[in-house]
């Protein structure tokens, strides 16, 4: 059978990098649902989710992803700039650049 059953702790054949990525995804998923729930759902006079609440939640989700994307873009730009500055500074001093 090709189905691999979990051995002793079950994580031996999974790449730790993959686990980290999955963990980060789950953390942001939880954060996102907390944020959108708190911002969009305020009325508890009815059990069902209203259309406005549904719309608000999906807008919240989409906007959250866009905001995250923009922030990481800016962050990267600053990172590159800081790296270049460090490189230039160490070259000026005549020392090899080290991370």
């Amino acid at each position: 059978m090709s189905v691999s059953l979990p051995t002793s702790n079950g994580f031996e054949n999974i790449d730790p990098e993959q686990i980290k990525t999955f963990k980060d995804f789950l953390i942001s998923y939880n954060k996102l649902s907390e944020l959108c729930f708190n911002d969009c759902i305020t009325d508890f006079t009815s059990r069902s989710i209203r259309n406005t609440e549904d719309k608000c939640t999906s807008n919240c989700l989409e906007k959250f992803l866009k905001v995250n994307q923009r922030i990481s873009q800016r962050f990267q730009e600053f990172q590159i700039l800081a790296n270049e500055n460090a490189m230039a500074a160490s070259q000026k001093l005549g020392q090899p650049f080290q991370i």
Partner: peptide, 8 residues
């Protein structure tokens, strides 16, 4: 926290 639109 007002999500009338999904755009930034």
């Amino acid at each position: 926290p007002v999500y009338n639109d999904s755009e930034i």
